[in-house]
Design a protein around this nucleic acid. Structure first.
Lengths: 96, 96
DNA sequence: CGGTATCCGAACCGATACTG
DNA sequence: CAGTATCGGTTCGGATACCG
């Protein structure tokens, strides 16, 4: 499984973000992610478990140590991608 | 366009990596990327141009400043993902 | 060389309904 | 509450052929 392949799929980053804020149950995750269908949420969670980024205890889902490391690596992208999207928007407004 | 959606698509990271090593023409990129079909390569390059990550001058393709910044942000993932894939492999060998 | 046009099979998203 | 089963509709990847 390629890392960025998984990260690019729908809801993956949202799930990681939500879990970085605290552990959540299946339904809670579903609500936080704009009512994503259970089909997709379950698929994503399975993939994340296979990749050892998310784990599942009796009470709900949580990030593994690896998942938290990944989240830390990901955070620099927050600021950069804002700047980036501004640039792209300007580029489009300039008529490309 | 979501950043990680694009990054997760096939060949995108390969293209960025190749271009970070030096500018290349369409055919050169195609060869470097295991003979990816021109259809896909062209689609990816269009997307990368729209996102202002790659540019095209008379001679070939090159990373924009933004593209180089992205590449710099991406590089920490190299080492981490090796460690990560070892962990996942061990996990599978342990019978999950 | 640098792409575009067409087409097909596979994968993916998501709604809905259902089970334990 | 937690998750599985099924089934469309859409998108994606890629092979091939072709044009300037």
């Amino acid at each position: 499984m390629a890392l960025f392949d998984l990260l690019g799929r729908s809801w993956t980053l949202g799930i990681i973000w939500q879990l970085s804020q605290g552990n959540l149950t299946f339904r809670q995750l579903q609500e936080q992610c704009e009512s994503v269908s259970p089909t997709v949420l379950n698929k994503r969670l399975k993939e994340l478990k296979e990749c050892a980024l998310v784990d599942h205890d009796g009470k709900g889902y949580l990030l593994t140590d690896l998942g938290q490391e990944l989240f830390a690596l990901l955070s620099p992208f927050g600021a950069w991608s804002q700047k980036w999207s501004r640039t792209v928007t300007e580029k489009i407004e300039d008529g490309k």
